[in-house]
Simulated scan of single mutants.
Amino acid sequence: MPILPQIEAAAPELEAIFRDLHTHPEIGFQESRTAGIVAAKLRDWGFDEVHEGIGVTGVVGILRGQGGGNRRIGLRADMDALPIHETTDLAYASQSAGKMHACGHDGHTTMLLGAARYLAATRQFDGTAVLIFQPAEEGLGGARAMIAEKLFERFPADEVYGMHNLPSGQPGRATLCKGAAMAGASFFDIAVTGRGSHGATPHHAADPLVVASALVGQFQTILGRNLSATETGVLSVTQIHSGSAYNVVPGTATLAGTLRFFKPQIRDLMQRRMREICAGFALGYGVEVEITFREIFEVLENDPALSDEWAAAAGDILGLDAVQIETVPQMGSEDFADMLQLIPGAYGYVHHAGTVQLHNPGFVLDTGILPVGASIYARLIERRMPLAA
């Protein structure tokens, strides 16, 4: 089964929606325009219920199939952009300086809208489709915000599915990893408070820059000297800020970064050793070092049996030979993991012709993926809630 004919016929409309969303990107929890478009489309297409403002800007659409079944299947797409200035020179490039859909969430939203349009027109399923348009996936806790507002109590689902685009340069493929598929993540912030001085007399200072610089190097020994080579973790310092003049030793410095892990005990090991190193440097250099951690992403766990169902739906559209399961886990993180903590489901990747990687100012999503993703979403509903013969 190729791309569903009704979705293929709607491809120009989907591309128009995508281009509009791409031109007007909105950062997490600010997706008011995007959410308004989503809600209006669902209503225009005849959804039974459309709920707005869930988790600030989230939208949930409820669609009942032809049968009277009680099964409920959730489909989720994210809507937010990134604080990146676009450099693609596309005709439909971002018109908001410093904001860009550099991760393809505009494409994910469009794909789920494409499935919504098709499912509302056909209703060839027995049960209820729960379509979740989530805000603020990019480290801001959009899934948790929706869950805190009783997402699955208000809109129950027996299973929930999602997907992400992958610019591999290999269109027509889909991949999925069973079990632990994407890493959990902590963010950390470190404040070093020392004593400033004139740049010509650093012996009067307790230099926080020396401490901050040394911490970066020492942190890189944690994994190599505390973790077995057969285990996996990532510790990345991604920010260091201090000073404002050429001739002043500053009094403070800050660092920030991220930890990635597949096992909570590895996260705990990294955090413990970071605290110990910070305490040692504070004592040794006569400064204050305060470190705090924020747990941002859970490990994304794909249900093994439902992974097979996601792969089967993708195989209906792309051919089974084009779908690969049991791929290696990814160190990137995704807050769909929070939903999978509550509802079993699966999350896979749909490949496309783009080659510039995600979160890059030159990223371009191949729009040929839009009807593909929409068809996979639609087939998940039809396969998991089939009408009686």
Rank of each mutant, 00 (worst) to 15 (best):
T88A: 03
R117Q: 10
E86M: 11
D106Q: 00
A305F: 12
D80E: 11
G104I: 08
G362C: 10
H101K: 12
E31L: 11
A115D: 09
Q218A: 14
D321W: 06
R275I: 00
N360E: 09
L342E: 14
E288G: 08
F133T: 01
F125G: 04
L318C: 02
F125C: 07
C103S: 06
P386M: 09
L151A: 01
A102G: 08
M339Y: 01
R384K: 13
C103W: 05
R384M: 15
A180N: 12
G348V: 06
I317V: 15
V323Y: 03
A180K: 12
D321I: 06
G169P: 01
L283P: 01
M111P: 01
N226L: 08
Q357G: 13
P208W: 10
S197F: 08
G345Q: 08
E86H: 08
A229W: 05
G368M: 10
E159Y: 12
N360V: 13
S244M: 14
T252L: 00
L82D: 04
H105Y: 11
D207G: 06
G345K: 01
E298C: 07
V237G: 11
E295L: 10
E326G: 15
F155W: 09
A180F: 11
L63F: 06
E231L: 15
M339Q: 04
G142T: 12
G98F: 10
Q66V: 09
L255V: 03
R154F: 06
V192N: 03
S197Q: 00
H24Q: 02
R117I: 09
H22S: 02
V56K: 11
F188V: 04
E301H: 13
H101M: 10
G319K: 11
V234R: 02
T367E: 14
D89K: 12
W310I: 06
R117W: 08
T23Y: 06
G368P: 03
H204K: 13
M274G: 00
S307K: 00
A353P: 02
E149F: 13
E15F: 09
V323C: 09
R154V: 04
R267N: 09
E288V: 04
E52I: 10
E26F: 08
I132L: 05
I325R: 09
L235Y: 00
C278Q: 07
G61W: 13
A311Q: 07
F281N: 03
Q341A: 15
A129Q: 01
P167Y: 11
T128Q: 15
I277P: 02
M1C: 08
L176A: 02
A40W: 04
L342R: 09
T110W: 05
G284Y: 07
I376W: 03
P25W: 10
A180R: 14
A11R: 12
G65W: 00
Q218G: 08
A191G: 11
F262W: 10
Q134A: 08
T221L: 02
I240S: 06
T258R: 07
H203G: 08
V289I: 15
I376G: 03
H85E: 12
K99V: 14
T327H: 05
A229D: 10
E276Y: 00
S94C: 12
G179P: 02
S197R: 03
T232G: 07
A206N: 15
T292F: 02
E231V: 11
